[in-house]
Design a protein around this nucleic acid. Structure first.
Lengths: 123, 123
DNA sequence: CGGTATCCCCCTCGATACTG
DNA sequence: CAGTATCGAGGGGGATACCG
């Protein structure tokens, strides 16, 4: 059961270039969180992902999906039909990750308006 | 209690440019998560932050802190002494956010090695 | 100590065009 | 439908120098 302490956090934080930082960059990349969350609800096809994750370009969709697939978060299943059909879904590992992402995103979504439009409050 | 659904997630995802996406970009910026986590343990001075968050440049430290301060996550307290002393800490809001970030980072730290060095596993 | 100002490179990302 | 290839702009971000 590794903790942030074991990972070298206390009194030195995660070393730059360590696996945890690399992975953090993958997950928190511009489109990573959005794709993971989108797929956490249901498996989606390429075209559906493009529409659901509004604003993503084909290039970034392909690129981000490949990274997420390489990390074992996303499963790509292609039907060799014509026209082709490709489904993207989360692996067990990806679902575990998404389970941590979802509360975060829900909190952010729930406070976004007051934070962005309201004044920064002291605390 | 806003949910992702209320925020426009289902069948359309968070609209590009919406407050939630803006905030998500702030939090998941290259150094955002690391700074938030670092400050979640204890309040730190400028110089300590530089050392603790290994690899961050002064420019990005200043820039990211200002964004986080603007969102009301980070509190900056300067003592008008010579030499100056400035402490950075989390606001209540920042602590709430960090409480969601920490489990995520712990999960990532706990799986980073097997994911980065091991083979991508199916699921 | 705790910053700001400036320069500039590089790399991300979007737009466009093309393919099986 | 599901991508890949290529190009070019923009800005993220590092290095350096300087200031109160």
């Amino acid at each position: 059961m590794p903790s942030l302490e074991r990972a070298g956090f206390t009194g030195g934080v995660l070393p730059s270039g360590c696996p945890t930082r690399v992975l953090l960059d993958h997950v928190t990349s511009k489109w990573g969180v959005l794709l993971l969350i989108a797929l956490s609800e249901e498996s989606l096809r390429w075209g559906e992902l493009r529409r659901v994750v509004e604003g993503i370009s084909e290039k970034m969709l392909a690129q981000t999906l490949r990274v997420l697939e390489g990390d074992g978060f996303v499963l790509r299943e292609a039907e060799p039909t014509i026209p082709p059909r490709v489904d993207y879904s989360l692996t067990d590992r990806g679902r575990e990750l998404a389970d941590h992402l979802r509360p975060l995103l829900e909190w952010i979504a729930g406070h976004a308006d007051e934070i962005i439009f309201g004044a920064a409050q002291q605390g």
